[in-house]
Simulated assay, not measured.
Amino acid sequence: MQSNEAPVSMEVEAVPSEPSSASAALPPKPIFEPLKAHEMSDGRVQFRKVSVPPHRYSPLKKVWLDIYTPVYEQMKIDIRMNLKGRKVELKTRADTPDVSNLQKCSDFVQAFMLGFDVIDAIALLRMDELYVESFEIKDVKTLRGEHLSRAIGRLSGKGGKTKFAIENATKTRIVIADTKIHILGSFANIKVARDSLCSLILGSPAGKVYSKLRAVTARLAERF
């Protein structure tokens, strides 16, 4: 049995959407200036203290102005030498532009205390990707007596030739202070220099280390 009713079509009228008056009435986004160092710490002064070893006291007196000038004038960090405590004290100021400047200056002064020249250590203030890594010969291999002396001699080479070759090839700076070794450079370059120094400590001849160093630095140059 068929129904005589005609099919009813359902049509929906499209109503044009009107822009909401609420979004149009929103105020423009505020623009805030970045917080300064003293504002991030709620106005509290932040300190750092770096101890001065006895053998670096006289060199510090000679180059004090070279250390004081970039820290105070460029990084806007107060610095003073505490003669009684034998420490270099650093603190933030109201006009310190960046909160990280205090740590950079602390690393700069600490690098000088480890034995780096001011010209080399000042790169820590200008570049963010530089680090100082320290290790001892006994961390690589336990050596005593003449064996230890010969290992230190292999690290330096005749007239410092081996040390300078590793520095120039890896773009790092190396300080050999008795049995402690300090390396200043970028992360990748420090790794290459450390591997070369460890090979020398373990007894590899300098010629073999040079050839391996040339191959590694060539690969690094192609990568970057």
Rank of each mutant, 00 (worst) to 15 (best):
K61Y: 11
G185F: 02
A14N: 15
S58Q: 14
I152R: 11
W64C: 03
R214S: 14
A121M: 08
P7E: 15
N168E: 15
F187C: 06
T92E: 02
D107H: 06
N82T: 01
L114H: 02
K104F: 12
T92D: 03
Q103W: 06
R56D: 04
Y210W: 10
G145P: 05
E13I: 11
L124Q: 02
F135W: 12
E133Y: 09
I31H: 10
K84T: 14
F108H: 01
T142R: 15
Q2D: 14
R144T: 05
R48C: 09
P28N: 05
V140Y: 09
L125Q: 03
V50P: 02
V71D: 02
N4I: 07
V175G: 01
D117H: 08
R48S: 07
E133W: 05
G160D: 11
D95F: 13
V63N: 12
G85T: 06
A22R: 09
L90V: 02
D95I: 11
S196H: 02
E222V: 12
T69K: 14
T179K: 14
L148A: 05
F164A: 14
E18R: 08
I31T: 08
Q46K: 09
S51N: 13
L184D: 00
R219W: 07
D128F: 06
A94D: 14
I77N: 02
I77Q: 02
K87M: 13
I190Y: 06
R223N: 11
R173G: 00
D178T: 01
S3K: 09
H182F: 10
A169S: 13
P70D: 04
G207K: 11
L114T: 00
K161P: 00
N101Q: 08
I122H: 04
A25F: 11
V99T: 06
L124S: 01
I176H: 01
V192K: 02
H55L: 10
N168M: 12
A215T: 03
K163Y: 00
M75L: 12
V12Y: 12
A94G: 07
S100E: 14
S199Y: 03
V12K: 09
L35C: 07
G115H: 05
L124M: 08
K36W: 07
G185S: 06
L114V: 01
R194Y: 02
S196T: 01
N168I: 04
D195L: 07
V63I: 13
D178A: 07
L90S: 00
T162P: 00
D120C: 01
E222D: 14
G203C: 11
V63W: 10
S199E: 13
E11I: 15
M40V: 15
G203T: 08
E11H: 13
P97F: 10
I183M: 03
A221R: 15
K138F: 11
Q74M: 10
L65V: 13
S20C: 08
T172I: 03
Q110Y: 05
L60I: 06
Q46A: 12
G85A: 15
D178K: 06
S156C: 04
A22C: 06
C105L: 11
V15Y: 12
P59F: 05
G85Q: 14
K208F: 04
K180R: 14
L200W: 00
